[in-house]
């Protein structure tokens, strides 16, 4: 699975959220996920197998997630993808 860089993450976000402008992107520490801010929304990209899954949620809700051992597990309230796991040692993102 290719490690994400900012350009690749931007491509994925553009595919899943074509109408949303990305203000800033953070690549996860292991390069297997990313989080972007789009206004008041957090756009989340996380790995499933060797593919990526994208979801969005309110920015404040994403930042309120409690990290554990360098992992952030973001809940989506979506039966198709209940949570996304991202490796961020520093959290919340600023």
């Amino acid at each position: 699975m290719p490690i994400l860089d900012e350009a690749a993450a931007c491509r994925y976000f553009a595919e899943d959220f074509p109408a949303m402008a990305v203000d800033h992107i953070w690549i996860s520490d292991d390069g297997r996920g990313a989080l972007a801010r789009s206004g008041e929304l957090a756009l989340v990209l996380f790995a499933a197998g060797d593919g990526y899954v994208a979801r969005h949620l309110p920015w404040d809700q994403a930042m309120a997630t409690q990290p554990r051992k360098g992992q952030v597990v973001i809940p989506f309230h979506d039966i198709a993808a209940p949570r996304g796991r991202l490796a961020f040692a520093t959290w919340p993102l600023t």
Partner: peptide, 9 residues
């Protein structure tokens, strides 16, 4: 895949 891909297997 689907428009909103599944989060796991």
């Amino acid at each position: 895949g689907i428009v909103k891909n599944l989060g796991d297997f």
